[in-house]
Amino acid sequence: MATQNTIRVSVRRRAATLSFWEQVYLFEVIRGLWITTHHFVLNLYYHILKLFGIRKTHPLTPTIQYPEECRPLALRLRTLHRLARRDDGRPRCVACMMCETVCPALCIQIVAAAVDDPNIEKRPKSFDIDIGKCVFCGFCVEACPEDAIRMDTGILDIASYSRGGMVLDIDRLLSLNAATERTDKEVDQLQKWLLQ
């Protein structure tokens, strides 16, 4: 037998909570103005200090000047995919089609080819991910038996003028590396690629 719980809801009338002085409104206006003016003066003070180079940062303004500055990304955040390489430089991927199968957005297209190495057997001849369709679920990463596909590039600003531009091919995917192991020069190159 399921027990029935009664939920008591207390109804409070909002109008009654305003005191007389609040209803006069004028004093509330002044109080509101006091708050905003307080912020205005403090902010202005720091803006002026910053303008004349006395301070480097503005402690009260949390604005992050994207794209020049970025908010730090969590390490486990799912970002743009990449294909990892083996130590000898060959792609780790063995074209097992796991990721293509599991992908709920059907955005991975793999064409397999044979390799001589009996331990590997197959390699991807082409490997396209249509980022325009991807829902960033990360299933492909979890499905991969070879830890070949990873989403740790730290790239989030993915945009293109055409749908075709959103399709990343195997060369592109292999050329990316993890955000944690990127050198400054590579960051610059990445910026250029993202902005083109």
Binding site: T36, H39, N43, L44
Partner: peptide, 10 residues
């Protein structure tokens, strides 16, 4: 600009 400075924006 004034609204920005009042609201902790830039």
């Amino acid at each position: 600009k004034q609204s920005a400075v009042m609201q902790d924006r830039i």
